[in-house]
């Protein structure tokens, strides 16, 4: 019964595997101590009482998730800024490479479509950069909460909106880069010099994917942390 309870709690904490394993061992030890201290001679009853006194495992998991959520949210802010900077570096490297390419030309690809896409690319990138930095400053200036209070939820909601804007703008910028590269490739034809720009484009896509993955992970944690944490907060803190 104790092992099963600890296993279920560990499963609730699977968002952080090292934490999950550590808590599992701690809780098993705790429950064995509680059973040993129980005056009853019936071990099953003693285990049931020990588990009941320990509390709802989802509530405990939610409390751990709040701490993890705060860490991860700040991590997402850093990742958003870092990935935007990495995309900028890749864009600059690609443009510089076009200047020294043996095949093709450094000149713009030409055409109204390319002009529009280039404009979208620039606007989207600078939007991602500005909103990303704003989100980082915003979440970095918030006090670390102990529990997921209403104010904390509001702050996380605002940060999520900023982060979503950053991610959407970054995806738009990377997509525009892809379209511009395709247009250039269509105009000049394939040559080996295009390998580096394509690799850099792949790196940009990777950066956007990393940001989206971190955001998804944080959104999941937010659901776990929000499941019962507020009720817990009202009752106990």
């Amino acid at each position: 019964m104790i092992a099963e309870f600890a296993r279920r709690l560990a499963a609730e904490l699977d968002f952080d595997p090292p934490l999950s394993q550590r808590v599992r061992r701690e809780v098993e030890d705790h429950l064995h101590d509680a059973v040993a201290a129980d005056p009853s001679s019936d071990r099953s009853d003693a285990e049931r009482r020990a588990i009941a006194r320990f509390g709802d495992l989802r509530v405990v998991a939610a409390r751990f998730a709040v701490a993890a959520l705060v860490r991860q949210t700040r991590g997402v802010a850093v990742v958003a800024v870092a990935m935007t900077a990495a995309v900028f570096a890749a864009m600059q490297a690609r443009v510089a490479w076009y200047g020294v390419m043996a095949c093709g030309t450094a000149a713009p690809t030409g055409g109204a479509l390319a002009e529009v896409v280039l404009l979208v690319d620039r606007l989207a990138f600078w939007l991602a950069a500005l909103v990303g930095v704003a989100g980082w400053l915003y979440i970095g200036s918030r006090r670390v909460p102990v529990v997921l209070t209403r104010d904390c939820r509001l702050q996380l909601g605002r940060f999520s909106a900023l982060c979503l804007t950053t991610a959407a703008a970054l995806v738009a910028s990377v997509t525009s880069d892809g379209v511009l590269t395709a247009l250039r490739l269509a105009r000049t034809g394939w040559c080996a010099d295009f390998v580096l720009p394509l690799l850099l484009l792949g790196a940009e896509i990777g950066c956007a994917a990393v940001l989206l993955a971190r955001m998804r992970r944080t959104a999941r944690l937010r659901r776990i942390a929000g499941s019962k944490a507020t009720v817990w907060a009202v009752r106990l803190e």
Partner: peptide
């Protein structure tokens, strides 16, 4: 350890702070 902390809290508060025992672990961490 965690269980001893809970017991110490109960003992020193003469049973006034009888928290669900799982409360202690997120706080300790």
């Amino acid at each position: 350890h965690g269980y001893a902390v809970i017991e110490e809290i109960k003992r020193r508060s003469t049973g006034a702070f009888d928290l669900p025992e799982g409360t202690i672990y997120p706080v300790l961490h």
